[in-house]
Design a protein around this nucleic acid. Structure first.
Lengths: 207, 207
DNA sequence: CCATTTACATACACACTGTATGTATGTTAA
DNA sequence: TTAACATACATACAGTGTGTATGTAAATGG
């Protein structure tokens, strides 16, 4: 019953895909490998052949999720040439992509808990967060935002977007929620602008 | 070997306390009830008498953590009479309290994963988040921030503070990190101010 | 075409949760 | 004061799930 190389690659893809749906529906702990492989018409032996353990299977799933979301963010942000608009569009793309059922829980809830915050963050730095930080860096180089601490700002905004995503998922009944959330993003950006204006001496600081 | 009521209450406190340290050190999944009760010189029977299951024990631990953190936030925010300063102090108190080892993981990582985001949020609404939302509401009523969507802003800022906390924990070597993080909070507040000024017609919106 | 590797399946050991039941002591009401 | 009951645990066991060791047949490479 040994399969060829391409068939094995297909098996891996299938396992990741099915695991993703099970993790989405039952969470990491609630998703038994047995029921995952059953759907794939395999046994747990197949999983332990292709992945070191359950956690590594989850990591592969998360990797796929992150890549999907980041791709959407990058594509949609590129629709504008204005750096502010790019940031806005990117944030919007992120929350609308991440809010989807098949992304949300794996990416924002189980991800940090299963892999640990550091490993989760390390993965994120290769995807959405890299884009966000890159954008802020560009804006800073262009002088449209002042000499603020990039890392702190990136994490602040990233965390805000993550929680906003989960809130949006919860508020899915209210269509106005997305606009409200984006308004909050706007406030943050306004703060940037004002700080940039201060740095260039347009207005003086308030008390 | 039956204990009196006060002794039983002491048992519960002790279990929560020891469980908290085990959850902190090994995470929820990695903390075996057996090793928790062993430290308390009890058996798992004691746990299942006082708590429905492991998750309920965790919920009790989280409740204690939330209460501690929220109390500190409330106390430190009350040190000022200026609403902006109160918000700033509250945010600062939150991150410095939440960043502590015995709070961080339980509150920000395992909490949502074990109880689910909704239950976790529901608990949070009775603690730190209630304070945050209340403060924003006060500021809005006083007109120092404009007619912005309160819930969206609250979640945005709350999520930002949570991630900032985890980032700070990771950056614990750099003492400047806290100030950088608070600077990011400041940007957000600047956005509020500007938006409030716009609403009251002090300056006109930019493109 | 033979040796070796690969892709799984099978079987088993182990850890942990949860539940059912037992038991001794505290509590309370007649 | 004591019998009846409730409470605070301990003990024993069943179930579920992960991980590991081993088996096996087919694919791959020389």
């Amino acid at each position: 019953m040994r399969r060829s190389k391409e068939e094995a690659a297909e098996t891996i893809r299938q396992l990741i895909d099915i695991a993703r749906s099970h993790f989405t529906e039952h969470g990491y702990a609630g998703a038994a490998l047995e029921s995952i492989v059953h759907e794939a018409k395999l046994t747990r032996g197949a999983v332990y052949h292709h992945f070191r353990n359950k956690k590594e299977l989850f990591r592969s799933v998360l990797e796929a999720v992150q890549k999907e979301v980041a791709d959407r963010v990058e594509r949609e942000a590129a629709a504008s040439e204005d750096v502010w608009q790019q940031l806005y569009l990117g944030c919007r793309a992120f929350v609308t992509a991440a809010v989807e059922e098949r992304n949300k829980r794996i990416m924002l809830i189980d991800g940090p808990a299963i892999l640990g915050w550091e490993a989760w963050r390390a993965m994120d730095e290769n995807h959405s967060m890299r884009l966000l930080r890159g954008q802020l860096e560009t804006m800073q180089r262009q002088g449209v935002i002042g000499p603020a601490p990039l890392d702190a700002m990136t994490h602040f905004l990233s965390g805000a977007l993550n929680e906003t995503t989960l809130w949006l998922a919860h508020e899915s009944a209210r269509t106005a929620a997305l606009e409200e959330a984006m308004e909050a993003v706007g406030f943050f950006m306004e703060g940037f602008k004002r700080q940039a204006e201060r740095a260039t001496g347009k207005i003086e600081p308030a008390g």
